[in-house]
């Protein structure tokens, strides 16, 4: 649930957001690991190259960086919610 206008439920939403952030970091790790060692563990002679870079490096470090910058933006756009942070406004004092 999104927090209501008086800010109740803020912590539940905040906790969920923290979890999303953690999951995204774990996904980033998985991408990094699989592309780097999946494509880069063979002998150097068999490497493929993309735009001059070895494919493992291009996928893990360059595409990985751009992809996860985009995913981070998507995460805050679609999963994070606006909410008041001040306690006075929230409790309606």
């Amino acid at each position: 649930m999104a927090p209501d206008s008086r800010g109740r439920g803020r912590f539940r939403q905040a906790d969920r957001e923290a979890l999303y952030a953690l999951i995204l970091a774990l996904l980033n790790f998985a991408w990094w690991y699989l592309t780097a060692y999946g494509l880069g563990s063979g002998p150097v002679e068999s490497y493929r190259y993309i735009l001059g870079f070895p494919a493992w490096f291009f996928m893990s470090s360059i595409v990985g960086f751009l992809l996860f910058s985009f995913l981070a933006a998507a995460m805050v756009r679609f999963l994070f919610k606006d909410m008041p942070l001040d306690s006075e406004r929230a409790t309606g004092k």
């Binding site: 803020r10 906790d15 957001e17 923290a18 999303y20 805050v76």
Partner: peptide, 11 residues
Amino acid sequence: AWLTLGVLGKR
């Protein structure tokens, strides 16, 4: 950046 801001978070 998203880890520190996200995990410490709004809480």
